[in-house]
């Protein structure tokens, strides 16, 4: 029992950091770049993706014995598309303003390769419990990345966070940040930053190992 518990924790955490779908796997770039011009849009998109990914993983993993492998991709897509359509209508009814902002990108969640990727790579091969935990981790990691990008772009592009002005009326907005090029620029700089952090960490581990070797 303790072993599976550890396993589950590991499956959850890997999506958050080590195998982060955006910063490490560089998947799901379309929504990542398109709707992160403000923190609130990023969170809304993150939640929508969260719901679709967790729901799809749950269904795919519990049906994995009945899905013939020749048509598995079609079945995954039907499942994902159903969840996306449900999300689309629900958002339109509950939060029409957010839906208007996200616009065409909600239906495009179907094409988010991160979601299909998790079904094929994980949910189809693991128990329901692990599949859901994996989906929770990946979806949280995706949402974390979306939020980071959205927050940076909103702070620089509007001088605000969640619509609350941070610097007063004299702030000069960086207009490029709320335009598409700002998405590419910010994402590129964030990837740069994360690989720098990773490299530093590896260097430190190597140095520690070296020091230990000398001590012995």
């Amino acid at each position: 029992m303790p072993r599976t518990k550890e396993n589950a924790y590991e499956e959850f955490v890997k999506g958050l950091w080590r195998d982060n779908p955006v910063f490490v796997q560089v998947l799901g770039m379309c929504p990542m770049l398109a709707v992160t011009n403000s923190a609130i849009n990023a969170i809304a998109m993150g939640l929508a993706t969260f719901f679709v990914l967790v729901g799809s993983s749950l269904l795919v993993s519990s049906l994995r014995r009945w899905i013939p492998k020749q048509i598995r991709i079609s079945c995954y897509i039907i499942i994902i598309a159903t969840f996306v359509t449900v999300t689309d209508f629900t958002l339109q009814a509950l939060v029409p303003k957010v839906h208007k902002e996200l616009g065409a990108f909600i239906p495009l969640i179907v094409a988010n390769c991160m979601i299909l990727g998790r079904q094929e790579a994980f949910a189809a091969k693991h128990s329901v419990r692990l599949a859901v935990i994996d989906a929770l981790g990946m979806a949280s990691g995706f949402m974390f990345a979306l939020f980071t990008l959205g927050a940076v772009r909103e702070i620089l592009g509007e001088g605000a966070l969640f619509g609350v002005s941070l610097f007063g009326a004299d702030f000069e907005p960086w207009i490029i940040m709320i335009l598409p090029p700002g998405g590419f620029l910010t994402l590129g700089l964030l990837l740069l930053f994360f690989s720098w952090v990773k490299e530093r960490k590896q260097q430190m581990i190597a140095r520690l190992a070296e020091a230990e070797g000398e001590a012995q």
Binding site: C75, I79, T85, F89
Partner: peptide
Amino acid sequence: TLSLAGLLSGLIIVTIF
């Protein structure tokens, strides 16, 4: 299998619509 999946999906979508 595919028809069944499509049918179920259609039902869910119509309901939520």
